[in-house]
Nucleic acid binder design. Structure first.
Lengths: 329, 329
DNA sequence: ACGCCAGATGTAACCGGTTACATGAGCCAG
DNA sequence: CTGGCTCATGTAACCGGTTACATCTGGCGT
């Protein structure tokens, strides 16, 4: 009752395995008669080709490995969705492996991909350049996502945080806001770092007053940050949080304190999560699915022709009523 | 510059492939000296075993295939997260394939899994029992999720919609509500069907007045449904939508019409999406990640010992302020 | 009638691992 | 000194496909 193999089909059709293989792969040089016998045998045996064996002899897997850290839901599903969309369009499967722990665990996850996939999409923000280079199976085309380390050696795609931040600050400046507060994300998060740095620069460029307070990407930290500022009697007319969650926390704290948004204080987030749309918040939309799509696209194209270098993925400002009362929700 | 194989390692270490294989797989019967030479050779060549070849000879892949339809973000990421968590715990990888189109496309997706995975987790709500049986590679252990067709033949796990609905209706009845409205989901969605049927039954059991109006799982349809009821002058004191999105639409329509929630009209959803928590809505929580976890767990356990039958996955009522003003948010 | 060629089919090596079985070395008991 | 045992190691078959190359057939030109 074991699974039928191509040899079983050959025996049943009274032909050689070579002919069967050719017929199944749509070669021209197979007689009509042979083709019929083979189709019949396949149906009778319920034969399904063994993709693993096929991959081995073709040295080609039609699969892409995806290695991600433990991600927040929204990002994860959108990213995978994007990759999947492009993958199924091109006849590839996605082999998923999450990078829970660090170090050795990560190396194993990457190694397990060898011989099962034709390329790797890796997001490993917490890995150093050396660890990463050591862990990546050499000779397996890889593309790095939002990973600053080793960007020179491997093709990579990064979210263009600076561009998003500039768009926000430009927008706030154009609305006449002068005293901006940035609620930063966790210090060990690269996106948070980049957003903070870009904020400093953009504020300097516009000659605005820019203040930075700490946050950790959670709603509560945004709320707490604003309460502290208000309690300290700090003056400001705009809040730009490093992500939407904190911006929502900020929004609630402001409204609880009786501040009018956006008339007195404008609020801007980053990411454009569904909730942001619901509360009509101005934010920076990151088309994550598109990022995944691009990554896969570039990787698969690169399987044919090597294409190194770093690419940026541009986000987009979405203006809603927490900055502009005229913007409808 | 091709990848090193085990034979290269053997040559370099001046040993046979058998010894190398044994050493790499941690067998006891390898001398210390041989082991050292092998470790050195592996390091020098940067050898990484070819998982595909290994799978072929072991007839074991350490991978589980996951075939899902095009799902809503929240569900998808939670489900995959759950499976992944359990998979990595057990040393399995996840091979993902989305089921975009129907029929032949679906069959191909399933076939492509043969020989790359040890088992299949399939969610194919739109496939008939026959199609499904035909498409599933025979001899590949499979577990069906939220798929009514062919539940008898294969092990499966279903969301217990009826239990969730009963909990809601019990809760509303205990609050003294008598005239309930159910905003149903799309007619071709199985969960929507089950929720609607269960609603009819629960309402009958309690001897309540139950009315059903159409919806399509989108926020707007919930809003429209309520507006229509109000315009028609229909009397009701509770709304139970087949999902949270529609419940939120209903909530907005009620508030826009000046109705007080929950004093005049209670509102309940289904799913417990993050937004539901934010608007403090009573709903039925479906622990999707847990569902994924269970599916994988059961499948992998079943690889050892076949365990047929159908299992139910129970959801849980979460009471918030759209039904009970005392419930804090 | 014969050689040549095209086209269908078969044989067997190969992809990169694992492993049953064979071999050979070293040790000890008789 | 030798038979028999243990233990490390090697040889080669095997997993299930693909494919280079060999073989066979029939048709055609001269």
């Amino acid at each position: 009752m074991a699974e039928a193999t191509i040899r079983d089909v050959a025996r049943r059709a009274q032909l050689s395995v070579a002919t069967v293989s050719r017929a199944l792969n749509g070669f021209e040089n197979v007689s009509e008669q042979a083709r019929e016998r083979i189709t019949a045998a396949v149906a009778e045996l319920g034969y399904v080709p063994h993709a693993g064996a096929r991959s081995l002899s073709l040295a080609r897997n039609n699969a892409i490995g995806v290695v991600l850290p433990d991600l927040h839901g929204e990002f994860f599903s959108e990213f995978v969705r994007g990759m999947d969309r492009e993958a199924s369009r091109r006849g590839y499967l996605l082999l998923l492996s999450n990078l829970h722990a660090g170090g050795q665990q990560a190396a194993n996850a990457l190694r397990a991909m060898r011989g099962r996939v034709d390329g790797l999409i890796v997001m490993a923000p917490h890995l150093g350049a050396d660890e990463l280079s050591a862990a990546l199976p050499k000779g397996l085309p890889s593309i790095l996502i939002n990973t600053r380390a080793g960007a020179g050696e491997h093709p990579s795609i990064h979210l263009d945080n600076a561009a998003g931040v500039r768009a926000v600050v430009d927008h706030l400046a154009s609305l006449g806001r002068r005293r901006l507060v940035h609620i930063a994300g966790p210090a060990d998060n690269i996106d948070a770092q980049e957003r903070e740095t870009a904020f400093r620069e953009a504020v300097a460029t516009h000659g605005l007053d820019g203040r930075i307070v700490a946050g950790d990407f959670e709603t509560e930290s945004g709320e707490a940050a604003i309460r502290r500022l208000l309690a300290d009697g700090i003056e400001f007319d705009a809040v730009f949080a490093a992500n939407d969650n904190m911006a929502i926390g900020a929004l609630e704290a402001l409204r609880a304190a009786g501040k009018r948004v956006p008339e007195e204080i404008a609020v801007v987030g980053f990411d454009d999560i569904p909730l942001a749309r619901h509360v009509e918040m101005t934010t920076v939309r990151v088309r994550i699915a598109e990022l995944g799509e691009r990554a896969l696209q570039r990787l698969v194209d690169g399987l044919i022709k090597e294409s190194g270098g770093d690419e940026l993925h541009a986000p987009e400002l979405v203006i809603r009523s927490t900055t502009d009362p005229k913007a409808n929700g």
